[in-house]
Structure formats: C-alpha cells, structure tokens
Amino acid sequence: MLKVSKLNVQIDGKDVLRDLSFKVNAGEVHAIMGPNGSGKSTLSKMIAGYPGYTVNSGDIEYEINGTYKSLLKMEPDERAKDGVFLAFQYPVEVPGVSNFAFLRMAFNSICRHQGAPELSEEKFRKLVEEKTKLVEMAPDFLERGVNAGFSGGEKKRNEILQMAVLQPRLAILDETDSGLDIDALRVVANGVNKLRSPDRAMVLITHYQRLLNFIVPDYVHVLANGRIVRSGGRELALELEKNGYNAYL
C-alpha cells in the first residue's frame, strides 16, 4: 500500500533522510524506531505532505485501486481524501472551531471525494458519539474548540478519535505514546488495536519500545541518521530496549 523508495530529503540544506526505502502492505503494522533526530518525524510529515521540505530524489508511492501513484505531487488534503492519515505528535490547537464542526467538515469532505453519501448533522453526531467511547472520552468535548486547552492526553485521544471517524486506509502514528501516562496509553493503544484491519496499514513511529507492548507490530525498522539500518520482527524492538541505539550510531 505504501512504497518509499530511495527517498532523500533536505531541510535547510541538511540531509535528513538518505536513501530511505521500505514497503508496507495492507493489513500490516510497521514500527519505525530510532533515536532523537534520526528523521522519524520528518518521514511522517513527508507522507502527510507537510510543506517546506525539499525532496532531492526518491519517491513516496501510495497504492489506490490497484495502482501506485506518487504522493509527492498531491496536496495534503488530497492525500487525506484518498485515505492517508497522520496522528500528530503535537496536535495543533484551533480555537473557535468546534471539534464537532471540524470532524464533520473533514468527514464530509472525504465522503464527497470518495463518492460516499455525506451525513446529516444528526446522523453524524450519532456516529461520532459512538466513536468517542472507543477512546473513553466524554461526548461533551465535541463542543470544545479543536484541541484548545486540551491536556496532552486528551489531544492524543482526539487524534485516535479522528482516525476512528475518518477511517483511513493508511495511518501514520507519530509518537502517539509520548506524554501519556500508563492508563492513557492503554486507552489509546486499545483504540488503535480496534482499528487494525486487513484493509488498513499502520506505521507506528516511536522512540520507546513501551508502546509496542500494547500495539504489537508485524515489522520493526531501526531508523538512524536518516536511513533504515535494520529491519526485523517484533523481537528487534525488545533487543533495542535492552541494548539501546548506540550500536547504530
């Protein structure tokens, strides 16, 4: 579903990703682990279409209806409408815009693009209220401004709620575990696990092994200095926890 090939990215003239390649199939969960500054967040933002990065060479391709097309030529909203989703490491606050209105606008925009019927306010509310249970949030937070004044944990839960409502095909979760206490982590991981499906691919980007105790990946990649230096199964994460990243620096 996702094919990153020989991707070279510069930020402010500095190489951040070098010849990065990996492939994710539908139904798979991949974990990308690496020390601070290894390029993990850059990779996630590249996939979602963050402006301001220079791609020197390589490509990010996304399979839709059986054919691969380059994501790099698409605007962020076009990527989202075709089923790409990024759960942000630092979800952005949008005061004055209610969570509900925002979710509904996003949902209907995606439906329109995919030729699915848009939902009335009433029907959409039902859907969202159902989904809030998944991340154990009180429905009243739907009326608050998007992430405005939310605690760190609430923001992360809100990301997972958005994912549950928008039902992406490819979800990138950027440091979803950071800043969560153990209970919140369990809630968030539980939400993510319920969204695992044979049609959906997920990429977990994380610094710590801890998250992978809750969301068990099919593959683990080690990212260091902008390239994937090792790939393996679940056991690689445990090894990293034991020995640290030093061997790869």
Binding site: P51, E75, D77, A80, F88, V94, G96, M105, S109, L166
Partner: peptide, 25 residues
C-alpha cells in the same frame, strides 16, 4: 502553516481551512 496543515491533513481544502480558521476567530 501548522494550523493550516493540520486541517488540510484531515481532508479539508486550503481555502476552506483558512475560512474555518478565520471564522473560528
């Protein structure tokens, strides 16, 4: 850029995203 990108990454077009931000304000 961050607010705009956040809204766009949820499938909301740039123009709609700007007006959403401004109307919210």
């Amino acid at each position: 850029e961050d607010q705009l990108f956040y809204l766009e990454s949820r499938g909301i077009g740039k123009e709609q995203a700007v007006s959403l931000l401004v109307n919210g304000f």
